[in-house]
């Protein structure tokens, strides 16, 4: 797992209080990890803070899974 993926995973675990083994690439924040709509807003803010990237609202709306977040950040930092 890449450094970015590891950091994303840690943020998700901290914010959603879920077990590490559930935070897999295909896991949906809302359907699989128990997040609500406010949790996802806060998660996106935490990614922005951690990686120093800006995630516009329309892009944030398409970040539904752990993998989506990793891909967006990798692209933003590339």
């Amino acid at each position: 797992m890449s450094d970015i993926a590891e950091r994303v995973k840690k943020i998700v675990i901290d914010h959603l209080g879920v077990d590490a083994d559930k935070v897999v690439e295909g896991a949906s924040f809302i359907d699989d990890l128990g997040a609500d709509s406010l949790d996802t807003v806060e998660l996106v803010m935490a990614f922005e803070e951690e990686f120093g990237v800006e995630i516009p609202d329309d892009a944030a709306d398409s970040i539904l899974t752990v993998g989506d977040a990793v891909k967006f950040i990798e692209k933003a930092q590339a």
Partner: peptide
């Protein structure tokens, strides 16, 4: 303002 948590108000 982009760093104000959605949980700030509730």
């Amino acid at each position: 303002p982009r760093r104000i948590s959605p949980f700030f108000i509730p």
